[in-house]
Design a binder for these strands. Structure first.
Length: 106
DNA sequence: ATCGTGACGAACG
DNA sequence: CCGTTCGCCACGA
């Protein structure tokens, strides 16, 4: 699995596999990497993404287990994320949530 | 090598 | 249902 490939890179590769109009969660990705309790680390990895990388990694398709966008003070990024998802065609419920049973991946 | 940290999450009360 | 607490991991100073 990890041949010198950092945890971060493994996260990015998984995220790249999320199809358009679908979303995954930090915890889900952690499970796919074999570390079910590394959800926090997954978020940390995405946080390290730079602007230039944004077009290569669909970071916007990763949300929390509640089906909501996670933002801790960074309202700017959160708004951008929501807009990008809506552009893909994803519909948010009245309480700003995404139905994981519909858009969830895998 | 040790410590603090954070786009998380499940368990509590 | 909601806020709080505690555990978990990888990373960088």
């Amino acid at each position: 699995m990890s041949d010198g490939i950092s945890f971060y890179d493994q996260v990015f590769e998984i995220v790249k596999k999320i199809p358009p109009k679908r979303v995954s969660t930090y915890g889900r990705i952690a499970c796919l990497l074999g570390t079910p309790r590394a959800a926090r680390a997954v978020g940390y990895a995405l946080n390290s993404l730079k602007k230039d990388f944004y077009q290569d990694v669909p970071w916007q398709r990763v949300i929390n287990s509640k089906g909501q966008i996670s933002f801790k003070g960074d309202v700017f990024r959160a708004n951008l994320q929501r807009k990008m998802l809506e552009t893909e065609g994803i519909v948010f419920t009245k309480d700003d949530k995404i139905e994981l049973s519909v858009y969830g991946w895998p």
